[in-house]
């Protein structure tokens, strides 16, 4: 990846964009206009930044509660994302769903929901239907975290996907924490998620997102494998969130995360690391970074203005869409 100037700049731009969007949400959250829980992806942007460069609108995606970056990696509308968090009618889910229920079927983003693990089988079902109807080069992303690996439904689905040879690409973002609960309190200390999963008979891999080239390489390998072989694949990506589990703040004053862990990710932040590398390689100049930032900031401001100026849903909307006709 880092040998390809154009590609690495694009990934940098994507990751930076996600970070700036999330930080803007964080900054304005106290205004009480975004009145729904937000699980921000600050710290976890690099992988979605890569995924955007593999965009194919025929690929489908499902995700969980921390889904802003996944939604954006599918080129879904930023304006509609912000309007959704504002609870406005112009939001991607008509303002009904909020931050945890995002959708844009036109881009292949089939939905994110708020219950850990509960879109995993939805992704498998989408894949099953496409396979039965012999859709060529079919791929469904199933985004999950390390917590979802503890649910029964994950293993139920995994078994089914392997049994039916469904082209699902499991992207497991392991940020080591389920809210405040550290991974080692929840899973045996020396067990690797990717190893456990591989025992089901599915190809697996793992990468640390701070290793930029390796992350790209492993994602790319998995993506191409699923597309070509039409078989499932599971990749575990080690990552870390910078903000609290849910909400706009930094919460490391609560001391639930180990100092070494925090220092490690502080020093190895993938977006900062990518920026430094690109500067060093002279793929990117400081002026270009500023122009990226101002371009992104412009889009963000337009999107927030759009959300602010959009109409809210009305009383009549309360009873809409319970049933399809």
């Amino acid at each position: 990846m880092l040998r390809n100037k154009k590609l690495s700049k694009r990934i940098y731009f994507n990751s930076l964009r996600i970070r700036m969007i999330e930080l803007e949400i964080s900054k304005r959250y106290h205004e009480q206009k975004m009145r729904c829980p937000v699980h921000l992806s600050v710290g976890q942007e690099f992988l979605p930044g890569i995924i955007e460069t593999f965009f194919d609108k025929n690929d489908k995606s499902v995700s969980g509660h921390r889904a802003h970056a996944h939604y954006l990696s599918k080129k879904c509308s930023l304006k509609k994302l912000i309007a959704e968090i504002y609870g406005k009618k112009t939001g991607c889910s008509g303002g009904i769903g909020g931050s945890m229920h995002l959708i844009d079927k036109s881009k292949g983003f089939y939905g994110s929901t708020a219950i850990v693990g509960n879109t995993i089988p939805i992704g498998a079902g989408i894949s099953l239907s496409m396979s039965l109807n012999k859709t060529n080069k079919n791929l469904t992303y199933i985004f999950l975290g390390d917590g979802a690996v503890e649910t029964g439904i994950f293993f139920e689905t995994l078994n089914f996907v392997v049994l039916k040879k469904l082209p699902c690409l499991f992207i497991c973002e392991n940020n080591s924490f389920s809210v405040y609960s550290e991974l080692r309190k929840r899973q045996p200390k020396n067990r690797k998620i990717s190893k456990l999963v591989s025992s089901f008979g599915i190809k697996t891999d793992s990468a640390n997102t701070t290793h930029l080239n390796d992350t790209f390489k492993k994602f790319s390998k998995a993506y191409n494998y699923v597309k070509k072989k039409q078989m499932p694949y599971f990749v575990e990506f080690h990552t870390s969130r910078k903000l609290e589990h849910c909400g706009p703040n930094y919460d490391d004053d609560l001391n639930y995360r180990d100092k070494n862990f925090l220092n490690y990710w502080k020093k190895n932040d993938p977006v900062e690391k990518l920026e430094k590398t690109l500067l060093k390689k002279k793929y990117l100049s400081k002026t270009e970074i500023l122009s990226f930032k101002s371009k992104i900031q412009g889009e963000i401001i337009r999107s927030f203005n759009y959300a602010e100026n959009s109409k809210p849903p009305k009383f009549e909307d309360l009873n809409q869409n319970l049933f399809s006709k």
Partner: peptide, 17 residues
């Protein structure tokens, strides 16, 4: 796997089956 199979039904249906 009753729970997963129900989710798989939902996914299949929204994708056309």
């Amino acid at each position: 796997s009753e729970n997963a199979l129900t989710g798989i039904a939902i996914g299949s249906s929204i994708a056309g089956s």
